[in-house]
Simulated assay, not measured.
Amino acid sequence: MNQNDQQAYDRGTSLFSPDGRIYQVEYAREAVNRGAPSLGIRTTEGVVLAAQRRTSSSLMEGDSIEKLHKLDDFLGAASAGHVADARRLIDDARTAAQRNRLRYGEPLGVETLTKTISDEIQETTQYGGTRPFGAALLIAGLDGDGTESRPRLYQTDPSGAPQEWRAVAIGSGRDDIQEFLEANWSDSLTLDAGVELAVRALLIADDELDAHSVTIATITTEGYRDVTESEIEEVIDRYAEDDDDSEDVE
Results as ranks from 00 to 15, higher is better:
Gly134His: 03
Asp143Asn: 12
Ile216Arg: 07
Ala183Arg: 15
Gly160Asn: 10
Tyr224Met: 10
Arg152Asp: 03
Ala201Met: 09
Asp192Trp: 00
Gly146Thr: 07
Val199Arg: 03
Glu229Lys: 11
Asp143Gln: 00
Tyr224Ser: 08
Thr228Lys: 15
Gly171Asn: 05
Gln155Leu: 13
Asp157His: 14
Arg131Gly: 01
Pro158Phe: 08
Asp226Pro: 04
Arg225Thr: 15
Gly223Ser: 10
Pro151Val: 06
Leu137Ala: 02
Leu203Pro: 00
Asp210Leu: 08
Asp175Phe: 02
Tyr154Cys: 08
Leu142Asn: 03
Gly146Leu: 06
Ala201Asn: 06
Gly223Asp: 09
Asp210Val: 14
Glu208Cys: 00
Val227Trp: 06
Leu181Asn: 05
Gly171Ile: 02
Gly223Cys: 12
Val195Thr: 10
Ile177Tyr: 06
Ala169Pro: 05
Val168Ile: 14
Leu203Lys: 12
Ile170Ser: 09
Pro158Thr: 12
Gln155Val: 12
Asp157Cys: 10
Val199Lys: 04
Arg152Pro: 05
Thr156Asn: 02
Glu208Thr: 15
Trp165Asp: 00
Gln163Trp: 10
Thr190His: 13
Asp176Cys: 01
Ala135Ile: 01
Arg150Met: 13
Arg152Tyr: 04
Val168Phe: 07
Asp206Tyr: 12
Val214Trp: 03
Gln155Gly: 14
Trp165Tyr: 08
Ala167Met: 09
Ile219Gly: 04
Ser213Ile: 04
Ala211Asn: 14
Ala217Gly: 11
Gly173Ile: 00
Asp157Met: 09
Glu229Cys: 05
Gly141Met: 04
Thr215Ser: 13
Ala135Lys: 00
Ile170Glu: 07
Ala135Gln: 02
Phe180Lys: 05
Pro151Cys: 09
Ala198Glu: 01
Ser186Tyr: 14
Ser230Asn: 14
Thr218Asp: 08
Leu181Lys: 07
Val214Lys: 04
Gln163Phe: 13
Ala198Tyr: 02
Asp145Ala: 11
Asp226Thr: 13
Ala161Asp: 14
Leu203Ala: 06
Glu182Thr: 12
Thr190Ala: 14
Ala183Trp: 11
Arg131Ser: 07
Thr220His: 05
Glu148Gly: 13
Arg152Ser: 10
Leu189His: 04
Leu137Tyr: 01
Val195Gln: 12
